[in-house]
Design a protein around this nucleic acid. Structure first.
Length: 407
RNA sequence: CGGGGCAUGGUGUAACGGCUAACAUGCUCGCUUUGGGAGCGAGUGAUUCUCGGUUCGAAUCCGAGUGCCCCGACCA
């Protein structure tokens, strides 16, 4: 992408009234634009990051968890929520049809996916099945906060699994932990993201959250220094021990942001809609369910809270908007840069702007693309370019012919 | 929803109740410049959030509303 064609502007000024690091950086670098509190537009660079995160999620959903992608509506009939008793939760956005029929904007999709499943699940032969979607959710938060970490409209992946019994649900639930671990590792926050025991609701002792340790977090978790697991403060008591190793002395308090959550619904929603199947003996039985969420935009924000420095963002390679930021200095270098750009693939952002070197470097640091490639008269004399990783200080000269193999 | 703070060109800020609302940045044009947010010159850009009040006079004081940020509560 040529930077002169990019629909984006950067700014030196920190946006007024944005204290969250993720929002400051994303707005300054032109990745997002605030429409109102808790509601953001995603601009080309920000959208590319979102798409990369989604690609990782889709890969793990499709290949690790054998799930099928669907797309459900954001408009839901209120009656479905009356059936589950969730019609009075306070984050529900309410609206209505011209006819007066009451609707809500979807904040989650159990009320839609379960009636949908009733058309597809009749027999034990139809189970298990897994469906997921990536879609915007709407929650009328009393207080949106922390940039894209808690918005009123936000993108979320939600997966729903359907099983013949609790045992099969447990099997899949364990498998989902692995997929989630893969996702957060690939997104570059594996080292700071911990599986966390949390409230399991009416039927289960625990659910599991995936919490990324950061000061920008909203939750307190108690992290076991040995086991790489944590307990959410909401369920901790004086006697609590690490659920993995059984020790309690090793628990350390940390602030963290919940980037994912897996939950055994069991028959709670199947019962509400009478979702059942017929087993081998011709007996009618309830379907067991699990649900599994990941906040896509929140994950993007969490990455920045963990990964940035005073000059700007530092994107992990797999979710970076581009892999290479190509910067020419001088007219001769520009000719060569054009040539390199034309022969490279789509993963290059080419700073073809007519502006000063310092301006280009500052923007490159701000945008945080993993590899900065500078080409100038100086490097051309050696038939080379200079490569610098955003996450490192040192730069190195590389022959132009060998460039492909370095990035 | 309770508490606190803020609201001035596109952006970030300044301005004792008193002159044509200032500075920086951005943007446009010209010249110059090219290894860390370049220089000079000329331009452009504002209903000082809204409504009401006090006053000879309000960006400034008072009231209400709205919006934004932070703390708390809330967060299937």
């Amino acid at each position: 992408m040529r930077q002169t064609k990019l629909f984006t502007k950067t700014t030196k000024d920190t946006p007024k009234g944005e204290e969250a690091k993720n929002a400051q950086l994303l707005i300054r670098a032109g990745f997002i634009n605030k429409e109102m509190a808790g509601v953001y537009s995603f601009l080309p660079l920000g959208l590319r990051v979102i798409r990369k995160i989604e690609a990782i999620i889709r890969d793990e959903m499709d290949n690790t968890l054998n799930a099928s992608e669907i797309f459900m509506p954001a408009l839901h009939p209120l009656e479905n929520y009356e059936k589950t008793g969730r019609d009075n939760i306070d984050v529900l956005f309410r609206t209505e049809l011209a006819t007066g029929r009451s609707l809500v904007l979807g904040q989650s999709h159990e009320e839609v996916v379960v009636p949908l499943a009733k058309n597809h699940i009749f027999s034990y032969r139809d189970l298990p099945v897994y469906v997921y979607q990536i879609q915007n959710k709407f929650r009328n938060e009393l207080r949106a906060k922390s940039g894209i970490l808690r918005g009123r409209e936000f993108s979320m992946k939600d997966l729903y699994s359907f099983h013949v019994d609790e045992e099969d649900l447990n099997r899949y639930y364990e498998q989902s932990k692995k997929a989630y671990k893969n996702i957060f590792e690939r997104a570059g926050i594996g080292d700071s993201t911990y599986m966390t025991f949390a409230d399991g609701g009416t039927f289960s002792k625990y659910s599991h959250e995936f919490q990324t340790v950061t000061e920008a977090g909203e939750d307190i978790i108690h992290l076991c220094s040995d086991c790489e697991v944590a307990i959410n403060e909401e369920i901790i008591d004086e006697q609590e021990k690490c659920p993995e190793c059984g020790e309690k002395s090793k628990l350390v308090e940390k602030k963290a942001i919940e980037v994912g959550n897996i939950f055994k619904l069991k028959t709670k929603f199947s019962d509400a809609f009478n979702l059942t199947y017929t087993d081998e003996d011709g007996k009618e039985k309830p379907v067991y369910m699990g649900c599994y969420g990941i906040g896509v935009g929140r994950l993007m924000g969490a990455v920045l809270e963990v990964n940035s420095d005073k000059n700007g963002m530092i994107w992990p390679e797999e979710i970076a908007p581009y892999q290479v930021h190509l910067i020419p200095i001088g007219d001769k270098a520009r000719e060569k840069a054009e040539e390199i750009y034309e022969n490279f693939d789509q993963e290059i952002l080419y700073d073809d702007r007519d502006t000063s070197v310092g301006d280009k470097f500052a923007d490159a640091d701000l945008m945080g693309i993993p590899y900065r490639v500078v080409i100038s008269d100086k490097t051309l004399k050696k038939d080379s370019v200079e490569i610098k990783k955003r996450s490192e200080e040192e730069e190195k000269l590389v022959k132009i012919d060998n460039l492909q193999s370095y990035v």
